[in-house]
Design a protein around this nucleic acid. Structure first.
Length: 851
RNA sequence: GCGAGAGUGGCGGAAUUGGUAGACGCGCUGGUCUUAGGAACCAGUGUCCUUCGGCGUGGGGGUUCGAGUCCCCCCUCUCGCACCA
């Protein structure tokens, strides 16, 4: 009993072995089938949390499994290294963002190594490496050339105190998150990527992404928000102005009784009449003060103001009043809406408030609707009324007919509208990729020549969090000669949104050291697309949509030949834990609770809901402590066994112990039988319980292979191996049949290797093998070994189980039926009743129908 | 409101095409071995009834020899989007 399972030593030894042998290094090999497996790369915050452990454990199972199956597996790791936390740390602690980031990377790399993940570390890079972002700058220049990157004025969240733009996430209740000053909208020149050019392709390709979860695709479709409709022009009365509206309901055109414009609409100034000026201006000021979030909440009371102007209905010639309304959004459609209060709930509410008339133009078949009887807008299908020559037409056909009619008259046309906006990539931040643009007073906006790339981030900056962008205040960085005329000019001081870096890192892993361009086309085409991408659902829209867009851009610029970056996507659930709260001391860490009472004050603890692990709720498990206590194999096993990957995982200490116990069982099953199986030969005929174990072994190979391969049913795969181990423990004739035992043990080790690689490498060597268990490969099952001589067949009477038969596997239907009817308990239920039918499902059951 | 998904023992979760509901694990109960064990091993564990058996997958209907699984209606929960014209 001197061969104890001590995870710490074993795991350290094998991690060292893998590192020394560069076991997971890969190169392009045209003769081998490639498999590219990628987990979303981490932000180097400095600490690994359980979410990382789960994410990477899931990925590592697939990587090791595919490798054992003989694939050439690319499994890289790197760092999403630009971003705000590094800058905040610099502001708070005076550490330079680069130092902070690279130190965090070093520490996290060590933490990851303890989990035993099979990465090709040769390909590691951080997005803040100049050798990475220089190629991003190059791609930007190409995009600029093609008009895919452009600059325009746009409204942003601005804090006067901090002199900076804030991301939407940094605005709390309409105030700056740092100084609590009220945030104002501000017009700023910003760089944009023309993602809208790709809206249709992004939408169409989404239908082809069979390997993506439906809900992610649904979220992306929703985000792109394609809607078919009609653009209609309304002439302003007594003016040269025309107001353009977008509507999905041209069928309701005859029901228009007023117009609603967004308060920011550019034509507003021209529409205000002198009598209304004071009222309108105070309304606009009021709306401006309102938080953007509030304004689009739907809860907000609908408010508006009459501009004093009227416009002319294009078909009836009636004059209709033009209003400004707080619920009309400038950044959707044209920022102007034709209001049909009888058939749109928002317009209905607005009309009720300002006593505007309703005109019914659609009626459900066989009913008569009047404006007076409506208590809400009628939004259903029906036939047109009060619509001139279109009366009686069903409203769906009327959409087409009225659009065509408008088109003929030159007053409107069918059009398609998207919710998707171009991607604003400018950030007034230091810790990001500098945008390679130079502004010259005589030459204008000049791209940095390719030979001058990279535009490096200066390292000697002072970060105070105040006074605007640190780059803008850095004289040496800003001063530059115009590449065209040579006169003094200045650099763009904004940096890219960090989502730009994460939009192509996966392709760069194919050729991380390539020095001639962003991508070595041959390598990129060999590895891309990513066969399996794994990450959190929180990236369903932003990152995953940007990455799809950017890949198409890279394709159109000739850098790679793929249309889509990720063939299959797995969105893993969160790691959750019960929260614990002391009435006196608030949230408590697990170690602050003993026997259900607070260790501080002895008061009973209130147990809260299970929630995502977070520092603020103190319901966290530190992966390092967990690995110290149980080893990383146990940590991996539990995070894979306790729930399917897509579901949230509830952390539970007893479950972890169960997993540790199982690994102990596996360890002993192998080490305690080494003498017995030392000279055993696997390839022999088995009888009795040896045949049963042999069958169970092969059934388990089949089950685990099917569960892991593409289905990610790791929990049931592990359960199947547990059953096999249970069968090994129940195996009685090991002394007479050591071959069956040896086979079962070796298969157990090989099947478990992707999940718990350290213990498996160790046991594989103890079983007498000279090479890594990965070299041994994934076991194949013998089809003929799956079949038993005798099988159990359930006998039902009228669908209820009444007995079981053990019968030869090749028994004929007649034999099965005769045996079923002869079964004593079955006979009891048949008794005097008449047998009407006997249904036989081969290999499964017999149902005797009596009545 | 729209979209996606879920509801199964005390708990986490099984059940590829309709075919033994509750695999596997946790917990619990009893036992073996131990000076001892929160170790290891063995047995039991949906529920009701003493047995035969009845009842059981959110609720109600339906299809079927047979429904957790398919169809219709309803309830609850989670997530995403949301005044999108």
């Amino acid at each position: 009993m001197d061969n104890l399972y001590i995870p710490g030593t074993i795991e350290a030894n094998w991690q060292q072995f893998w590192e020394q042998n560069q076991s997971f290094r890969v190169t392009e090999d045209p003769d081998k089938k490639k498999y590219y497996l990628l987990e979303m790369f981490p932000y180097p915050s400095g600490r690994i949390h359980m979410g990382h452990v789960r994410n990477y454990a899931i990925g590592d199972v697939v990587a090791r499994f595919k490798r054992m199956q003989g694939f050439n597996v690319l499994h890289p790791m790197g760092w999403d290294a630009f971003g705000m936390p590094a800058e905040n740390a610099a502001i708070e602690h005076g550490t330079h963002p680069a130092k902070w980031t690279y130190e965090n990377i070093a520490s996290m790399r060590k933490q990851l190594a303890r989990i035993g993940l099979s990465y090709d570390w040769q390909r590691e890079f951080a997005t803040c490496d100049a050798e990475y972002y220089r190629w991003e700058q190059l791609v930007f220049l190409k995009m600029f050339e093609k008009g895919l990157a452009y600059k325009k004025g746009s409204s942003v969240n601005w804090c006067d105190d901090c002199q900076t733009v804030l991301a939407n996430e940094q605005v709390e209740d309409g105030c700056c998150w740092r100084c609590h000053n009220q945030v104002k909208p501000k017009q700023l020149e910003q760089w944009f990527f023309k993602i809208t050019d790709y809206a249709d392709e992004l939408l169409e390709c989404a239908d082809e992404l069979k390997g993506w979860p439906e809900r992610v695709l649904a979220m992306q479709r929703n985000w792109i928000g394609k809607s078919y409709g009609c653009e209609i022009e309304f002439q302003v009365a007594d003016s040269a102005e025309k107001i353009k509206v977008f509507t999905t309901r041209p069928d309701t055109l005859y029901g228009v009784t007023f117009m609603s414009l967004a308060p920011e609409h550019p034509q507003v100034a021209a529409l205000i009449t002198d009598g209304q000026r004071a009222e309108v201006e105070s309304f606009i000021a009021e709306v401006e003060m309102q938080d953007k979030v509030d304004r689009s909440s739907g809860e907000l009371e609908k408010k508006g103001v009459f501009t004093g102007s009227y416009c002319v209905h294009p078909l009836t010639g009636r004059q209709i009043p033009v209003f400004l309304a707080n619920f009309v959004l400038m950044d959707y459609g044209t920022g102007a809406v034709m209001a049909v209060p009888a058939h749109d709930q928002r317009d209905f509410e607005f009309a009720a408030k300002y006593r505007l008339p309703l005109q019914v133009v659609i009626q459900p078949e066989g009913e008569v609707l009047t404006a007076e009887q409506l208590t809400e807008a009628f939004v259903g299908q029906g036939l047109l009324v009060n619509s001139a020559q279109f009366d009686g037409v069903d409203n769906e056909s009327a959409k087409e007919q009225i659009a065509a009619y408008l088109d003929d008259r030159g007053e409107g046309r069918k059009t398609i509208n998207y919710r998707l906006r171009d991607w604003g990539v400018s950030r007034q931040r230091y810790w990001g990729t500098p945008i390679p643009i130079i502004y010259c007073d005589s030459c204008g906006t000049v791209p940095v020549p390719e030979k001058d790339l990279p535009v490096k981030l200066p390292t000697d900056v002072e970060l105070t969090g105040e006074g605007g962008s640190p780059l803008a205040r850095h004289q040496e960085f800003m001063k530059v000669d115009c590449p065209i005329c040579g006169m003094p000019a200045r650099r763009e001081s904004d940096t890219f949104d960090t989502f730009v870096e994460s939009s192509w890192y996966f392709a760069r892993y194919a050729c991380p050291d390539y020095a001639e361009g962003p991508l070595d086309k041959q390598a990129a085409n060999y590895w891309m697309p990513v066969d399996q991408y794994i990450g959190g659902i929180e990236h369903a829209v932003m990152h995953l949509l940007y990455a799809r867009f950017y890949t198409k851009v890279l394709r159109d610029l000739g850098f790679v030949d793929v249309d889509e970056p990720f063939t299959n996507l797995l969105t893993q659930g969160m790691v959750c834990k019960e929260t614990q709260r002391c009435p006196q001391h608030g949230w408590l860490y697990p170690e602050q609770v003993v026997d259900g009472v607070c260790t501080e004050c002895g008061k009973p603890v209130q147990f809260g809901r299970t929630e995502k692990m977070s520092k603020s709720k103190k319901n966290v498990i530190d992966p390092n402590q967990l690995i110290d206590q149980y080893g990383s194999d146990t940590a991996r096993l539990f995070s894979l066994f306790a729930a399917p990957p897509e579901k949230d995982l509830e952390w539970n200490e007893q479950g972890v112990e169960g997993c540790a116990r199982f690994l102990g069982r596996v360890w002993r099953a192998v080490t305690e039988n080494l003498g017995l199986i030392a000279s055993a030969d696997i390839g022999q005929e088995f009888t009795g319980d040896a045949a049963e174990l042999h069958r169970k072994t092969h059934q388990t190979i089949k089950k685990v292979t099917e569960d892991v391969d593409g289905r990610f049913h790791f929990n049931t795969a592990i359960a199947a191996v547990m059953e096999l181990v249970n069968a090994i423990y129940s195996f009685k004739s090991a002394a007479e049949n050591p071959g069956a035992l040896r086979e079962a043990l070796e298969v157990t080790v090989r099947l478990l290797n992707p999940f718990v690689p350290h213990i498996c490498e160790e046991l594989w060597r103890q079983l007498g093998h000279q090479q890594s268990v990965e070299v041994a490969g994934w076991p194949a099952y013998d089809e003929s070994a799956l079949i038993a001589d005798e099988i159990t067949v359930v006998v039902q009477v009228n669908g209820k189980v009444r007995g079981k038969l053990i019968i030869a596997v090749d028994a004929s239907k007649d034999e099965i039926e005769a045996a079923a009817l002869a079964e004593p308990n079955v006979q009891r239920f048949i008794e005097d009743k008449q047998v009407r039918k006997v249904i036989i499902v081969p290999g499964r059951l017999v149902n005797v129908v009596v009545g």
